[in-house]
Design a binder for these strands. Structure first.
Lengths: 119, 119
DNA sequence: CAGAGTACTTTGCAAAGCAAGGTTAAATAT
DNA sequence: ATATTTAACCTTGCTTTGCAAAGTACTCTG
């Protein structure tokens, strides 16, 4: 396996790991449907494809973290507008805490790395 | 699936995603062998088990990011002391950049979440 | 040499990302 | 009105990978 491929692979894993978290954050702001989530993610350079997003949304749905309403569209089939449930809000809060902890651990490690490399 | 299980699952995914990165950071500080890596990870509350770590180290090895030297031990079988190769250093630098980007994106999202929830 | 402790390896299962292809509905073109 | 295009959403199959559990191998102690 080439190094570049491998680098990309690890990077995509880092993205993956925080995907549920990011999706919940996006949904928390306002009700939104899948295709618009994809655009939003692209803005943040968190590239995701349909085949990843739809199953993920279904998992969130069946876990009770999100719910959706069908809404008509003027230009195509109806859309599922997702929003957080109260369960979803609790989940998001737990993930925020978790994110902060992970961040602290990694930043501590990064600092000792930078020290060893004379800034 | 219960919410708690699901929460844990997502959290463990977030850990997973940054695992290679964290391992590289730890190895970058000084040559170290697997069992001590596990202790180190525990200090940072990034729990990992053997069945995860050893295959991961082998993947890093065969991608050329790390190399190891056998060293005798006074209390058991010999140990593989891992250290970064120059390839590994480049990989780590790329991951550092990637980490910073991901961090920025997520922090931007978190900020707009906190705004909507009136701090 | 038997048992305990330490270190590394392997196997098998399950979760999940992703490419590719499919279905359905509305709008537009012919 | 039929065909094509576009927008949404869904599904299948492959592959990767984390992890529990069991296995191998080496050293030291009694």
């Amino acid at each position: 396996m080439k190094r570049d491929k491998y680098t990309e692979n690890i990077q995509s894993q880092m993205r993956k790991g925080s995907l549920e978290f990011v999706i919940l954050l996006i949904i928390s702001r306002k009700a939104i449907y899948a295709a618009d989530m994809l655009k939003e993610l692209k803005k943040y350079e968190l590239i995701v494809v349909e085949g990843t997003l739809y199953p993920l949304l279904n998992r969130l749905k069946s876990s009770g973290a999100v719910e959706y309403q069908w809404k008509e569209s003027k230009s195509g089939p109806p859309r599922k507008y997702y929003k957080l449930t109260s369960k979803g809000k609790k989940l998001l809060d737990a993930l925020l805490l978790n994110w902060n902890n992970l961040n602290q651990s990694i930043n501590a490690l990064i600092q000792s790395y930078e020290k060893n490399n004379s800034r």
